[in-house]
Nucleic acid binder design. Structure first.
Lengths: 212, 212, 212, 212
DNA sequence: GATGAATGAGCCTTCATTCAT
DNA sequence: TATGAATGAAGGCTCATTCAT
């Protein structure tokens, strides 16, 4: 048989997703995947190179595009005039975030893999990498806008890292927890407000929450 | 009386920590651990029963005590008079949290194992379990105090889950990231204020952040 | 199409027979078998599934057919008219038995395995199972024909079990002992007469042997 | 502790019997035995030397005495005047056999071990050895008495071996099958008559059974 | 390109046995 | 003598990967 059999590749990918999600990357077995997809291990090797290649084939397009969407979002926001950033923040950011959520839910399985089944692969730091990008831009944002409002030096990169980690994990929790997309959007909207408030509190000295 | 060779147990535990941290539970090899600790695999089996027993021996005391500390903290807070909870929250909670951080840093490796290397063991849901406890108590807290201040029904259990997940992950990030304890405490203090603000914002209608 | 290497399967089976016969199923080592057959243990697993699978592959066809031959023989005899059974017994039964011996000698090794090396496998009760079948049919035979000649109630199922066990073990002894097939047939013929006499003695009151 | 603790040896022996019977010699585990007997493996080694030593300690006295009783029985019978042997056979032999059954039931477990759990030990041929002795004496008996009655040369050593194997296995079946001693005796009595008849049939030409 | 048997390293685990205490 | 931890060989088995067909 000389040609790639139609649909087998999709079958392999589907079965691989299932196996990786169930057992995690390391514990997953190529033979189980091949058997479930009614192919041979050899075929997986010619198509994907090796075990990691199979995982990558499933996850890379999504990881790459997510990275790109995410980075673009940051850059776009960064390119707004500094003076406008504060005002734009809410609507503009939310817009980007909602698009991202749409994207995540359009690639639900791939995100679950990236979040929970990537240990042992090149993508084991996927979330960390997103966090790092967000941290970098947040830091720039603070340096750009923040000088005017920061009273002290609380906003170190370390703290930002922590907050962003928390935030991002919160966002991804909608995937891990399997919420439906509408609930997810509502919650993330709230989480955004929540973080906004927290953020402002620290920038302004930390009393805003109480007196409201 | 046949005696365990002095120091070997400690050596095994130390090497096991290293191996588990480096490769994760599943991919870690007892042979490698035994070799590194200059013992035999058989010896590990007499001391710890099996692979999971070794992991458990390292992690269980810490996991158990953490659970206990955490639960007690929640209960103590819950037992304060409802009317006092709002005022007490800051100082009281921070006190408990700081004790917890002390405990975590006193058992740094064990926490790293629980956070990042426990997949495939009984402790793979350690963080989730903590989150669930916190969620439960937070929900009770809201029902107790929140009625007076909630304007709408935003605070569903699902959203609390997300926020708490974010918060707890933020806290544990100090361990994952390897910050020193003083920085960790400072940051977590800030994170607490941050969350407080976010929390209040939602309870009060969500405008506090802006006007500060 | 990946092909099994020619002759290796036969080699494995041959070496497995040898190892199982020498050490018994439990003590036999797959590694030893693989090495002797110039293959890998992995190969044995792809071909036979597991250790018991290897044993079964060698022994099952023979055990199954033996069971079938044996059962058919019993049924055929049972279906002869009751009045004819006594007269037919000799020639008819001997016919079946001789066919069975031919079969046994055509599968000498497999029978040795079933007899002496099957402890720990599904076939550890192979002889007992044959005995049980023979007992069942013997009991039916006695109920059918015996009434006319039995003077007392000596022929309990328990005793039949003992006699049949003895008889069957006697028959199989030709295999265990490694006799050549002609001697075996002669002996078993004699054993049949021997048992016939014993049997009749008990049915008729037990004096036949002496006065002959 | 300097002295052998009272009763521990018995405990070990009892637990060893259980383990050997359940799993067979090879698959039995000394550590399981030691644990069940509330001793240490080391203690078993000082008391019994090694695994086989433990098995032997349980089984040897019985095997030896059985061998002796059995041999003596044969010799005693052989020493009767040739002319009397035929007449004495019934009562005399039965006497010996009944004594042997008493002995077997007085050491039930040990016989079960010898019969079913001795593979891999020095005693794996226990039954065969008894058979060989019986065969030897039977052959002598035939040569002494048989000449007068044998019409042809049917009674080869090979055939005797087969018959004796059958007979002995029949006898031991009472142990294997767990019959109570009274039933056992009754059955063995019958089996003896059964064999007697068979034996005579062959010596006299093989027609006795039919005309009864 | 597809196949799947072969490979052999490696896994966790168990064992009889030894020996310092 | 008793102990039981240590030993290290060996066990069955699984795996990602290769390669002849």
């Amino acid at each position: 048989m000389a040609k790639q059999i139609e649909g087998v590749l999709e079958e392999v990918v589907e079965c691989a997703k299932k196996e990786f999600l169930e057992k995690g990357y390391t514990a997953a077995s190529l033979r189980t995947i091949a058997a479930a997809a009614h192919t041979s291990t050899g075929s997986i090797y010619t198509r994907f190179g090796d075990k990691e290649g199979l995982f990558r084939a499933i996850v890379k397009p999504v990881a790459d595009e997510m990275m790109q969407i995410f980075t673009k979002m940051q850059e776009d926001f960064h390119n707004i005039d500094a003076k406008d950033q504060l005002e734009e923040m809410d609507s503009y950011s939310m817009d980007g975030i909602m698009k991202m959520i749409d994207y995540m839910y359009a690639h639900f399985d791939e995100f679950k893999l990236l979040l929970d089944a990537s240990h042992g692969t090149l993508y084991q730091n996927f979330v960390d990498d997103l966090v790092d990008i967000e941290v970098r831009y947040t830091y720039i944002y603070i340096q750009t806008v923040g000088i005017r409002i920061t009273r002290d030096e609380k906003m170190t990169e370390g703290f930002i890292h922590m907050v962003v980690t928390a935030y991002v994990n919160g966002v991804f929790e909608v995937i891990r927890h399997g919420m439906d997309i509408d609930t997810a959007k509502e919650y993330i909207n709230m989480l955004f407000a929540y973080n906004q408030a927290g953020f402002n509190t620290l920038l302004s000295g930390g009393e805003s929450g109480k007196e409201a």
